[in-house]
Nucleic acid binder design. Structure first.
Lengths: 113, 113
DNA sequence: GTAACTACTTACCGATAGGTAACTACTATA
DNA sequence: TATAGTAGTTACCTATCGGTAAGTAGTTAC
């Protein structure tokens, strides 16, 4: 069973990379919001009503650092900033969808019962 | 765009349920380990070499409380305990696979570059 | 009797995550 | 001059997460 255990080790490494990028309470919700199109700071805040500006700002920076989103400043008046998914960010789409689908399934199976 | 924003709110609710169940550093790795078959406490520890018995015990309890795994005690000598995925646990398979696939993708795109 | 294997538990501690409230800086409008 | 809208920042605090080290309890082998 040598290769079976090595395969497990490999998987454990890969999921850790993913978890590192998406961890915490807010990053996934932010990404969900951005799948509906490019958004400004205030628009994301209005989607995720219970996020504080501190957490939103902090998590947007982390997502930008990991090349998941881009931040574009427009010097309109007043200044607006637009956040958008990168191609790497869009590549999370299937994962986001599974998080969604399983949440629905879980609610039907456990919470609903 | 009324239904578009309502759809977003619905998704945000569902992913929160999922995140609640799988959150933290260890639950996903534990589930990955159990996809290779039913395992004893010590076997999971040997898969996930850097988990402490405290965290393993704690997270196994949480997963059991959420009906994701079962705990079966055999009064062999010495006592052995077997952990196994429930059908609900197995229903996480696609999600686990996406976490894995994206981790590989991310490594190729960002870390590997 | 002592070491080793099973599966944990407990106490303690430091690091990180996240919440609250107030404040900043710039521009436009009344 | 005051208010509102843009997008944040800062200080402070608490709660949760996770790590370390040691101890528990029962059985078996030496």
């Amino acid at each position: 069973m040598e290769h079976k255990s090595q395969n497990c080790q490999y998987k454990l490494m890969a999921v850790r990379d993913t978890l590192e990028v998406i961890r915490g309470k807010w990053r996934i919700p932010i990404l969900i919001s951005l799948t509906y199109g490019n958004k400004r700071f205030g628009e994301i805040q209005r989607d995720i009503t219970d996020i504080s500006p501190k957490m939103l700002s902090q998590e947007l920076k982390e997502l930008e650092a990991n090349k998941i989103i881009t931040r574009t400043l427009y010097d309109s008046m007043p200044v607006t900033v637009e956040y958008a998914l990168t191609p790497l960010g869009h590549s999370l789409n299937k994962l986001l969808n599974e998080l969604l689908e399983w949440g629905i399934h879980f609610r039907n199976e456990v919470i609903g019962k």
